[in-house]
């Protein structure tokens, strides 16, 4: 059984159709990224899956239950990492993690969790004094304390510096390696490429493409671009058979500055959401 199955999901706010018929399948143990520009319907969709928002239409099953009706036992299996929370400002990291551990039947060891997210040195600092990256790591700590089967991460690394992002990624990879199913939204393509087994691109409330980061939008089969420098200047050929093209070109001798490129995930993405 899939961890998440969505068919025909719709949600409108007044006149604005935020989600206009989304289908999604996320297998157990998978890391699934939802990409899309601001206003694409990512957060709305995820909040419906989390049970935080009503839907207008569609079938939704998350860990075998309908989020609109599921109860405590269901929520105990989820880990939700919030996007912009500033709560627990007057609790220390240690107090907050220990407190949230009490909500679950079989929580992880709070001290281990603090260590896992790299906040051991900040365990005695209050939430309100943490830097942006540390604050998000506290959010992750509170999200994983209950040993979730499924984690939701909504734009988890927005505002991180490059080093903090790398650290964060390795933490997510570690959780995924433990078998946790992860649904993450992001608008960083490198993040999706680094973490996700599969991605879906959302635009205008619909899924416009879905696949592995390597094959998204027909990327693997797209024409390659061969570029080189001749005495007439920079040359460029788009071809489905770059090996053959180069073989032919190189009969006349060495090709200066030769490169073969396929569209990057970013190229594909920008085309999809245009």
């Amino acid at each position: 059984m899939n961890a998440i199955r969505v068919r025909g999901l719709k949600k409108a706010y007044k006149d604005h159709q935020a989600v206009a018929g989304v289908d999604l399948d996320v297998a157990r143990g998978e890391v699934f990224a939802v990409l899309g520009p601001n206003g694409a319907g990512k957060t709305t969709s995820v909040e419906i899956l989390e049970g935080h928002r009503d839907r207008d239409a569609g079938e939704v099953s998350v860990l075998g239950a309908d989020p609109a009706k599921a109860g405590r036992e269901w929520r105990a299996k989820l880990g939700i990492v919030l996007q912009s929370a500033t709560d627990a400002a007057n609790l220390t990291v240690r107090e907050a993690v220990h407190h949230y551990a009490k909500y679950y039947a079989d929580p992880r060891d709070p001290e281990e969790v603090i260590d896992l997210v790299g906040l051991t040195e900040k365990a005695k600092s209050r939430g309100g004094t943490l830097s942006g990256g540390q604050r998000r790591r506290l959010d992750v700590a509170l999200g994983i304390i209950g040993r979730p089967e499924l984690m939701f991460l909504d734009e988890p690394t927005t505002g991180f510096d490059p080093e903090a992002r790398r650290q964060f990624w390795s933490l997510i990879k570690r959780l995924a390696a433990e078998g946790t199913t992860i649904l993450l939204t992001t608008h960083y393509l490198d993040e999706a490429e680094a973490l996700a087994d599969r991605v879906a691109v959302l635009a205008g409330g619909r899924v416009v493409a879905e696949g592995t980061p390597q094959t998204l939008g027909g990327r693997a089969h797209a024409d390659a671009t061969v570029r080189w420098l001749s005495d007439r200047g920079h040359q460029e050929i788009r071809t489905a058979e770059p090996t053959k093209t180069i073989a032919e070109l190189s009969r006349h001798g060495e090709l200066a500055e030769l490169t073969v490129t396929r569209p990057s995930l970013e190229d594909v993405y920008l085309e999809l959401i245009a």
Binding site: I80, A85, Y103
Partner: peptide, 17 residues
């Protein structure tokens, strides 16, 4: 304040009644 700073949203995502 709990609604504004995310406390309630976080709690709603936990099994706390």
């Amino acid at each position: 304040a709990d609604r504004e700073d995310g406390t309630l949203k976080r709690l709603r995502g936990t099994p706390m009644p």
